[in-house]
Design a protein around this nucleic acid. Sequence first.
DNA 1: AATGATAATGATAATAATTATCATTTATTG
DNA 2: CAATAAATGATAATTATTATCATTATCATT
Lengths: 146, 146
Amino acid sequence: MRNSKQKEIILRALGEHCIHPTADELYNYIHQEYSDIGVATVYRNLNKFAEKGIIRKIIGLDGSSHFDSCLEPHYHFICSCCGKIYDVPINIGKDLIAKAEEFTDCKITSMNMTFRGLCRECEDKHNGKFVFDEAETEMLLTASTS
Amino acid sequence: MRNSKQKEIILRALGEHCIHPTADELYNYIHQEYSDIGVATVYRNLNKFAEKGIIRKIIGLDGSSHFDSCLEPHYHFICSCCGKIYDVPINIGKDLIAKAEEFTDCKITSMNMTFRGLCRECEDKHNGKFVFDEAETEMLLTASTS
DNA sequence: AATGATAATGATAATAATTATCATTTATTG
DNA sequence: CAATAAATGATAATTATTATCATTATCATT
C-alpha cells in the first residue's frame, strides 16, 4: 500500500470522530475542507484500511457500513431512536467461543456483538415514551436465559 | 395485517429453508412455482413479518438482509469462505448485558451476536489453506480476553 | 351472498449506496 | 531523474431495496 495525502486526510478525519461515520458521511466532512477529494477514494481507502486491520468496519442494523478508528477490543451499542453508535468496552469469555465451536463444528476466527436500545440522551428527551416501531430483528432479551 | 395467499406462500417457502435466504433469493425460489408473485410483495412481507416478530432478520457482514423463520434464541455463524449462515443455539448470560448497560449508561433491549470463521465443509474442501483476504472487520479473537 | 372500506398486490419507476472503469497523476525505487 | 506501478478522481454502472399507484383481494357487516 502506497502512501498518499488523501490517505492521511481520511485517517485523520476518521480519528476526529467518535460517532462512527459512514463512508459517505466522512466524505462529506472531508469534502468541506478538501473539495478536490473523490468519493471513490474515501470508500476505497476506508475499506482497504479495514481489510488491513488499521480501522474497523461496523455493519449497522440497517445494513449500512460505519467505520471506527478504535482498534481496542470493544463492541457497540446502537440507539434505536437516534441511530448513534456508542462503544461498549467490554470483553467476553473465551468459553463462549469454545461453546459455539462445539455446537457448530466450525472454526471461529472472529466474532461481533451489537447491543441495541435507548441511549441516555434519547431516553431523557422522550421520557421513556419512545415506541419501538422498528423491526425487532435481533434476539430479544426476554428470550435469553443463562 | 390482512391475510393473503402470497403471505402463506412466503412463510411456507421460508420455512423450507435453513440457509437463511435473502429476500431476493426467496423471491427467485418462490417465483419458480408461482410466477405471478411480485418482488415487492416478497420484500414487503418479509420485512413486515420481521417487524411483527414472526420471523427474524439477520444483517450479514456485507450488509445484506437474510431471513430466518426460527424464533428460538440463537445466534449465527457466517462462513468467511462460502458465506453460508449457520445457527448457533447458545445463550449468553444476563450479566453481560448488565455490564454493557453499566458501561454505556444506555437501556439495552436486544442484542445480537455473530461468529465468523470457516465451516466444516469449506475447511475440508480447502484443507485449511483458505486465506482470509476479506475485511477483518470484527473483533479478532486474539484481542479478546476474559 | 352482496356490499363497501381498505389493505395487499404487482409492475415498474425511483432511490441510494457502493463499486468498476479508465485516463491522469503521484509515489517509490533504483 | 527516469521508470514503473499504484493511487486518484470523474463518472458510469451496478445492485439491492423501496416508493408509487392502479388494480385486486380480504373481511366485517349487512
